[in-house]
Design a protein around this nucleic acid. Sequence first.
DNA 1: ATGTGC
Length: 470
Amino acid sequence: MELVEEGPFRYRIDPHEGMRVPGIVFASRELLADAEQSLEQVVHVAALPGIVAASYAMPDIHWGYGFPIGGVAATDADDGGVVSPGGVGFDISCGVRLLAADCDGEALRPALAEIMDGLDRAIPRGAGPGGVWRPDGAGELERLLAEGSRFAVERGYGEERDLLRCEDGGAVADADATQVGQRARERGLVQVGSLGSANHFLEVQQVSDVYDDTTAAAFGLAPGQVCVMIHCGSRGLGHQICTDHVRLMDRAMARYGITVPDRQLACTPVDSPEGRAYLGAMAAAANYGRANRQLLSDAAREVFRRATGARLSLVYDVSHNLAKIETHEVDGVRRQLCVHRKGATRAFPPGHPELPEDIREFGQPVLIPGTLGTASYALAGVAGGGAFYSTCHGAGRTMSRHQAARSITGSQLRARLRQAGIAARPKSWRGLTEETPEAYKDVDAVVAVSEGAGLCRRIARLVPLGVVKG
DNA sequence: ATGTGC
């Protein structure tokens, strides 16, 4: 792949092979070495009808279904632009929530084992059914899909202030539950308030570094402070919605005269019945994902309250797998675009009207989950953020799950975490080996490059004290 | 990511 170095940590792939726009890859030379194969997917995405500006790749890019994970693509509906479920991914609305405790690590230490045991009992996780709340039939699921975190808070799982610190106030307005199929509903009904498996986790963390005292304080973060980070998505419901709508679009594509370089890029115009149906179902899954994180926050709060009386207040909740209709200025013209972010986090700049009033001047909080036993980050959006105000979402895999599981045994991993002073409560030690840190890129490098490329800035770094995983 | 692989 021919890459033109355009600026610091910014590379361009010039249009060829049916590309309508260039590819723009944000990376260092080291990170590019891991990205080589997935750049082909950046090229494929650049061929989508109606794509605007560029097919972007974040520094944590890796191979995904159709689109790369770490990809950003915006399309213009008025210019034949399409929407593609592959541009969001199977885990619709997968995202991260960070809660700040009113105590520091030193104070928490004596109660840590008790808290971890409490979380071990309170947090449903792993594949299959099980959640903290079983909606009372189809009516409640319907409201959950329409109202997201708002409904969870209304039902007593949280406080009104939580909603102010959620992307979209905790619910997107354009959810259309009629486009969520029966199987998706059945799977979703029994998984409300559950973590899932793979790289999803709930961690008790401590702030290890602060890079901007003022912004950190405004976000509610200080050196040494205890936090809880939750990384999860929309479970089987989102997965089923993606499966269903990929199939529908795959069949419909030809009728719109659309051809794509990879069948996994199945798409239809944003303004088509199929496009609107997907966006409506996707928004319902987005609300499910937010409610899921809200319910797990409530479960964690209860454990902390009982163990030490500590309170957890929400810093922010943001997704990294979503398509959204947003207004952006392109070459001096304001346009309504369908922005696909897949393994990429929205990072609105300071002053953006959609940000909570009390932190608006600092830019949107961006939450980056680390991999097992490594650091996580709180970042902030910056003015001029290159890729439709998006940045990285995490470390990004370099090893397959199979490869990772062969590289270390459960007991070796267990010993390492214990040595690092991290209290782990996995559902199974065997399953955890797929998540060994060597299977991922270095999150510190990914975040440093994202900042260097002008996509975001670092606010605080967090390290794990305890981890709950599927 | 996922009642993991058509």
